[in-house]
Design a binder for these strands. Structure first.
Lengths: 206, 206
DNA sequence: ACTATCTTTCAGAAACTTCTGAAAGAACAC
DNA sequence: GTGTTCTTTCAGAAGTTTCTGAAAGATAGT
């Protein structure tokens, strides 16, 4: 009578989810605990206060406080209040796509933007143009500098494309990403004129 | 006479690039040194051997060896040999888009695939169906289990879409990503019938 | 203004990751 | 088969990140 795959009760299932979400932390560029706190809020679907989070995940008050704050900064968790209760409650964004948009927005800001800025800076300070400046710029070095400049350009054009895509996906209207995803899926399917059909149906949805 | 933005010579410019690429390491889910080794190989554009890497980045032999191996595993660096030289040389993928495809491919495999598998597993073991099993499944718990099941479904559909997009981008033909990126840029531009023009020009390019 | 309740901060502790360098392991030449 | 050259491995050292818990800081009720 023992079932082939052991049945989990609610708490066990939630714990499993929290654990695997915690393992993904690295992928999102956040700490494990922060991901676990987010997972807990997401999967319970209701607002929890600091003590409930501490209790459920067995973490210290300081850790809970810092993790919750960081999640607020990322914009994927919001504060909430219950009347007649002075505690703060925290609620996770429930729409998975909205959550993903917030993450992309934040990572563009934190990672891609500074990178692009730095690449431009190097390009400026290298200047493959009429570079007959003070330093003994011999022929061999000039050629190498030009190659470097070319590589920087390729890199820049790549990241600017990424940033452009990202910004559109993340746009205030918010309809970009899901539509684009399914459109792309159809567009890149091989053969026939799937493209036309995909386009037409997308047009209609406007 | 001092220039407003100080000019960099080749080595200085490369070092700057290596440093900022190293800072991005976290974003790609690799260690700083590994990113620096990759940056060095990418920016010098030619094959370097272990000793050259050690010397240039001032790292130990063990570290160089391990980092190079990891880069090979990621598929963004290849082995090369020079005739009359027993040393191994390492060359970085020079096409930025190809490099990015390799990274996406690897991260899908390492992060998204296992996540999707785990989510399915939890769903299986929770089974919102005729769940009148051994455990005292009271009404309240059943309702909560159903909510959990719904959230898992949303998450799954999200990641399956991501994986679908990713797999297409990464496809053997390789033409997917750049085309899709520019197409999308046009498609999501506001107003008019940019969509038709984008589509037409993409069609032509086939 | 005092007290009770809740939140944030931060110095040091614990846990984890990355790096080193010496030793073992391959591959090749002779 | 021996010596030479290059590569990989791995135990412990160094460095980095994350966590704790107690103390300081807010906020609100009386």
């Amino acid at each position: 009578m023992a079932p082939a795959s052991p049945q989990l009760d609610l708490k066990e299932a939630q714990d499993r989810f929290i654990a695997i979400w915690g393992q993904m932390a690295g992928a999102w560029g956040i700490s494990r605990t922060m991901a676990e706190v987010h997972a807990l809020l997401f999967i319970s679907g209701e607002g929890l206060n600091t003590d409930e989070v501490m209790e459920r995940l067995q973490i210290s008050r300081g850790n809970a406080s810092m993790s919750l704050r960081a999640l607020l900064d990322w914009g994927i968790v919001e504060r909430a209040h219950k009347r007649g209760d002075r505690k703060e409650y925290f609620v996770a964004e429930q729409d998975v796509w909205a959550m993903f948009r917030a993450i992309v927005r934040e990572r563009l800001k934190r990672e891609v933007d500074p990178l692009v800025a730095s690449l431009y800076e190097i390009k400026d300070q290298t200047g493959a143009r009429s570079n007959t400046g003070a330093r003994g710029s011999n022929e061999a070095e000039r050629i190498e500098l030009e190659k470097l400049d070319k590589r920087l350009d390729e890199m820049l054009s790549f990241f600017k494309t990424v940033e452009g895509m990202g910004t559109r996906f993340v746009s205030p209207t918010g309809r970009g990403l899901l539509a684009a995803a399914s459109l792309l899926a159809k567009l890149t399917d091989s053969g026939d004129n799937a493209r036309d059909r995909a386009l037409a149906s997308e047009e209609r949805r406007q």
